[in-house]
Amino acid sequence: MYIPLIGQDGIREIITIGIGKSAGIISRLTNAHVYITVPDLYIIKSELNCPFYANLLDNVSLISMEFSGYLTGLINLIIPYESALNLVDLISGEEMDSVEMDVVRIDTLMETGNIIISCTMSALCNIIPSHLKYHLPLYRNDKKNVILIDLNQTEFKVTILVRIRFEIQDRMIEGDVIFLLTPSSFENLISCIVGIAGGDKA
């Protein structure tokens, strides 16, 4: 799969704008300084696996949302389980001894994830010609390898893996935003970026 440089740069820029916007909203929501950076971005045609993922038996929290239309795919926010607990506690200002993701915490994490996902999708939608249809976001936690197997079994074969880093109250929490797209959706996305940039796809 050939990806023009302008396409790769465009994807990075759009996602960085979306993620940056989400950091602003989370900061205002929580009255805390929240920074989210995008240290790494990979576009992968094959299945998600090493070297991107290690410690496959660790538990992770996953928020995912399916979409269809001009772009068809699945967007996922994956955060290591313990980091997700820390993130929720930092965001909600509640220091809990418990290591359990109860429904109150899940709800808080869902809103945080929803902000990141919505901002990113909104940034993408600014460059495509029509609105997308969305399913409601879903939460689950499971072992990393089980989630990766499930993601690899979807029909969406092009992956945009975005490493994100939250900085909240001097703490650093890392997670991944994973876009899974159908090959044709990915082509559509690249075409839009190239079209806006006024460049030649080749």
């Binding site: 205002r28 929501l29 709800d107 869902m110 999708m121 909104s122 939608c125």
Partner: peptide, 22 residues
């Protein structure tokens, strides 16, 4: 903040979840 998220939803950003914590 809610208004901004509503506008984002209408602009194609997808569903908005408002948790009961906030």
């Amino acid at each position: 903040l809610i208004m901004e998220r509503l506008k984002m939803a209408f602009a194609g950003g997808g569903p908005v979840i408002l948790s009961y914590r906030f």
